[in-house]
Nucleic acid binder design. Structure first.
Lengths: 333, 333
DNA sequence: CTGTTAGCGCCTTCAC
DNA sequence: GTGAAGGCGCTAACAG
């Protein structure tokens, strides 16, 4: 245990220069004579000096934080977004500061307030929709704001993602074109997850255009999972035995549906088609690759981080980056 | 955009009190007259005051950060640990500050240095083993240090987890007691993941005690995944066709192995037994629940956070909390 | 290329 | 129950 933490002053004294010179060397800013730099480096080394960022933040009125707000850590989707953010931030001095809302709008608001207390240079949120106060705080913060995943709303500053409504609609069109007519839906509680509802609405719209409607639908309480998918498909088939395709809110659930078919001896695709959403690895690893919509969560995170670094001041105009998606034909529909 | 960010001084002026009084109200510390408190509250409300934590940290020489270092975000294991940490921190003023090492010891060291610059009150690391410098920095930081996941090493302060060596050994004993004799192993690059190696070594030790040894083993480059498990099991069976049980480094890989058996028409358990590690949901959702070792990642994170909050000063003695594990019999072995 | 001056916004200590 | 003074460690702005 060192008796006391060395400060800039200590380093400066040891190196025989002023504090500001040490500060410049440490931050790599300003012109410094090679020899001076070397002397300072050695002093830093000797003392084991670690800069105090709280002091730096206070003095420069600019922290190196980027506040990141994610809805959930219950499946791999948002950790992937986070990986993308880290990737986009690599090599920059910025540090993500993470909050998790559990899909709760009030919690998002609290988390935002606490993140803002650290004077972040930007906020990246994948929280679904915001409370009015949240939106106001984002707007008034004056810092860059990236809203991730969907582009169906009206962004505060920058939105990165794609239209979930359109993805749902395209899924419906695709399945209709392949001859499916009797649709069942397996979802979860979408009061929290607005993107799930957008996809659902897009799907229903596509069906309506073809003069069709859902023959049955079931919703699980709580987070989606393979286990829930297994149970919910069984329930759906109990209520609507004659459907020819089941559309799932996401791949986790759809993979569970696949397992139900295996156990129940249902011929996947010919007996019952399955369709997911996300394009998770696990869905493509099962013996019949899952028919689904692939999106690139990693890319969404990375682009958001890169754009923010490239333009640290909030621009006058809002912008939307469409990262797109792709319908994977797969083998289950 | 507010013309200027209100500070304590602004609030104090509006409320007609001194700065320190506002500070006390905001932090909920010290004795304050109910009426004063109310007046201050209103002023805070009116101005939309948000405390500047950088200033607070600097002045009090104690930040509200807990540095968290995780090896990877490529599967659900560490997000679960993180959820546990958030759970353990709920209701406290502490905020996790996350770094991800990608299983790289040098990167862990860099991340640690940058986290320490924020004067965290504790460091929680699930990084595998440390460089010498990392260990020294942890030791000298003087703050609480929790090392998560395994208890096979010599902790700096607090370790929370269980012995992976013992878990590997118990797995071997269990499988031998069930009659398996010809073992194959499917792993990944464990230079990075020392816990995987500990389990492997435990397994091999159990085999040796019974006069057995591995009949074959394969290792994938890169992160583990179901897809890699599928491919690697095929490869293993090419090299060692007569094994009666395949032990996988983790459930992701084992689930992939299960899929290979489905596709290749191999009777799981009777033709080839499968054994995993972690007890992931997906492993328990497949038609034959995976035989595996269940650990509680959420609990590990939560306990670490709770213990740190309960005792914010580093105690004189190191401590180890064994969260245990459980062999799940499952249906694949 | 280097130094001086003057805070950043808050909290600790000590007084009343 | 409240306040005054001083400083936490660093950096912007301006000299030289």
């Amino acid at each position: 245990m060192p008796p006391i933490k060395p400060t800039l002053t200590d380093v400066a004294r040891l190196a025989g220069v002023s504090e500001i010179t040490v500060s410049r060397v440490v931050r790599g800013k300003g012109p410094i004579a090679a020899e001076t730099r070397e002397r300072v480096r050695r002093a830093v080394e000797t003392l084991g000096y670690v800069p105090n960022r709280a002091a730096g933040t206070l003095a420069s009125a600019a922290s190196l934080f980027i506040g990141v707000i994610l809805p959930s850590m219950h499946n791999i989707v948002f950790p992937e977004v986070l990986r993308g953010i880290y990737e986009g931030l690599a090599g920059s001095p910025y540090q993500p500061l993470l909050g998790v809302t559990e899909y709760n709008r009030e919690k998002e608001q609290e988390i935002l307030a606490s993140l803002l207390a650290w004077q972040p240079m930007a906020i990246i949120t994948a929280g679904s929709d915001h409370t009015e106060t949240t939106r106001r705080l984002l707007l008034e913060s004056g810092v860059r704001v990236a809203e991730l995943m969907d582009t169906d709303g009206d962004p505060v500053d920058l939105a990165v993602g794609f239209s979930h409504r359109q993805a749902g609609y395209d899924s419906g069109k695709h399945l209709i074109s392949r001859g499916y007519r009797r649709f069942g839906y397996v979802g979860h509680d979408w009061d929290a997850d607005r993107r799930a509802r957008f996809r659902y609405e897009g799907l229903v719209a596509a069906l309506a255009e073809a003069g069709l409607s859902l023959a049955g639908e079931v919703h699980v309480d709580g987070p989606s999972s393979a286990k829930a998918g297994t149970e919910m498909l069984a329930k759906l088939l109990g209520a609507a035995p004659d459907i020819d395709v089941a559309v799932f809110v996401n791949d986790d659930m759809a993979v569970g549906g696949y397992f139900h078919c295996l156990s129940a001896g249902i011929a996947v695709k010919d007996g019952l088609a399955l369709f997911g959403f996300n394009g998770l690895d696990i869905g493509q690893a099962i013996p019949l690759p899952l028919s689904t919509v692939r999106s690139d969560r990693f890319l969404i995170g990375r682009i958001a981080a890169e754009r923010i670094i490239a333009e640290p001041k909030r621009p006058a105009e809002t912008a939307i980056v469409d990262t797109g998606y792709e319908i994977l034909e797969g083998a289950t529909a």
